[in-house]
Design a protein around this nucleic acid. Sequence first.
DNA 1: TTGAAAGCGCTAACAT
DNA 2: ATGTTAGCGCTTTCAA
Lengths: 342, 342
Amino acid sequence: MVTMKDIAKIVGCTEATVSRVLSKPEGESPISKPLQEKIRVVADRLGYQPNLMARGLATRKTDNIGVVLDCYEHLTHPVMMQTIAGITKAISTSNYSLSIFVLDQPGRKEKQLNLANLFARRQVDGLLIAAYDVDVLAIVELIKQKYPFVLVNMSVDGIDTNLVVNDSAAYSSAVVKYLYDLGHREIAFLPGPSKYGPNPKRKVITGIESAAAEYGIRLGPSRLVLTEYDRDAAYQAAKELLQSQNRPTAIFAGDDAMAVGVYHAAVDLGLQVPQDLSIVSGADSYLTKFAPVPITAIHARHLEIGYRAAELLQEVLNGKEGTERVVISHQLTERNSCTKIN
Amino acid sequence: MVTMKDIAKIVGCTEATVSRVLSKPEGESPISKPLQEKIRVVADRLGYQPNLMARGLATRKTDNIGVVLDCYEHLTHPVMMQTIAGITKAISTSNYSLSIFVLDQPGRKEKQLNLANLFARRQVDGLLIAAYDVDVLAIVELIKQKYPFVLVNMSVDGIDTNLVVNDSAAYSSAVVKYLYDLGHREIAFLPGPSKYGPNPKRKVITGIESAAAEYGIRLGPSRLVLTEYDRDAAYQAAKELLQSQNRPTAIFAGDDAMAVGVYHAAVDLGLQVPQDLSIVSGADSYLTKFAPVPITAIHARHLEIGYRAAELLQEVLNGKEGTERVVISHQLTERNSCTKIN
DNA sequence: TTGAAAGCGCTAACAT
DNA sequence: ATGTTAGCGCTTTCAA
């Protein structure tokens, strides 16, 4: 382990001088060019690497950013992977390193990881929170202590903080408008669960309701069915909807797996997609892309959300004041699952 | 920021004593019960949290483990996420934290992140390497310096080290045997690329070759086609294979997206699956599970691979000597894409 | 521009 | 069982 002391000894200066050269970027340190050169050469020759714990202890910074998830299982969810990929992309061009933390602590006294403690223990300089089960009080505590963080793809009612989200209310409206413009008047919605995260009602659903009102689309239990995000649940629900008195001509499914479930339900009932039924998926993935009839889907750009969240956090760490709400817009990716009707 | 010194002052003992209590688990510290209690109570009341950088500086340990990937894009790959989920699962019940590192450094002088430096800079105590593009010399350097690491789902020819892999040669044989037992003699293979990672030839391919020899299955260019892992490439290749003189009765596709490509090629040629063509996928995902005809697939248990790798690394960090090769066996998940032929 | 000295918060060896 | 002392490797005043 080679230290600054070693370099100082060889060069014939003090540790402090070495630090002044090696801790600042090549550009400007207050040390004379020749000495600077000498020090850099020796450091290179010895393969010097700074001890980041020592540096952190002295500077009170960790140069580390944490991502917080609910549980390790979420890492396998396509939306989360996209988000984390975006975060990693942003981080990897910076000087920060990235750590993963999971709220869920099976078999520990504290059921939920204490976020403020991550700061107190000097594990992170800032946090990207993509955990829908997070305790609201934990968030409040972070704000009270002025610990920097950004909410990723989530928000907490009544709390004003930095966050990056998609326009979930807007995109459900967009779907309604899209189908309406194709001539559909009987549209059923399988948006998934009513609640996800700390808020009482998902924005997607409020978006559906307001858009339905706007376009005069009838809702009600035969038009809006809440289930889990689940292929089979969607399959069942769709089957019932499609066998009802006046069956919908279009179905909006909350995510990709659900959209596939809806498709299979239609096929199993002898219906053709899109001739007899138009389908839009609320999430895009290779499941929708590679479906037998490629499915029109909302592409929510989660990679972008992660990327912008990491960027925003870094701005905050650089002293940015106030709070910012960044909204990442969706795209509607048209494929072959929808058609005009008269 | 409350420190041990603060606690010592209140309790009326020295910092050292506080450290002896708070750094060991409740079980045994050499301090008298009553003093121990006092210290714990005060620590609790003040909300004391240890400064991990200070501790690390003193103990020369980071209590951090790093996962190394090729690039951030790999985070969107289902196999990788399964692996990382497994790693996270294992880590989250330990006292280690987890960091993500990416080899690829766009626009820096060193094109590849220097792994040994992660140790020298005291960022990690150990590394889980799941990066197929890793420079072999980087691995050699780690060994030379005795820095602990485990290769995850990869191996390097001629290097004997700790690793956890799946039985890729075995599972391609298993596929051949499975199809052979169903009566298939004309089997085509679309295993993906010939090379992936630091070794000259993928084990899956050598597995296919030896199994083909064993069962007397003919290979050759009309039976073994190398492409990228890509739905469209597989679609094209399958179309050609299925239009050739004596077309195969079964196709083995390297991964889930390719298997779907093969399926669509068959359908587009008016063939029925499995009546006219049996399909086996080399990777399992919801793409195979939710396909119109659910596809029989090799399930490689990547979560298990990640989990075991993290476990193994922790054993090494606890002083385990020697090297271990852990092989995680596959499962063949039978669905509806294969049938017996006469 | 450089050196001297103190300190970041913790642990560990040596004493008692 | 507890106190004393000396670092761990770096940064940062304050002087010169």
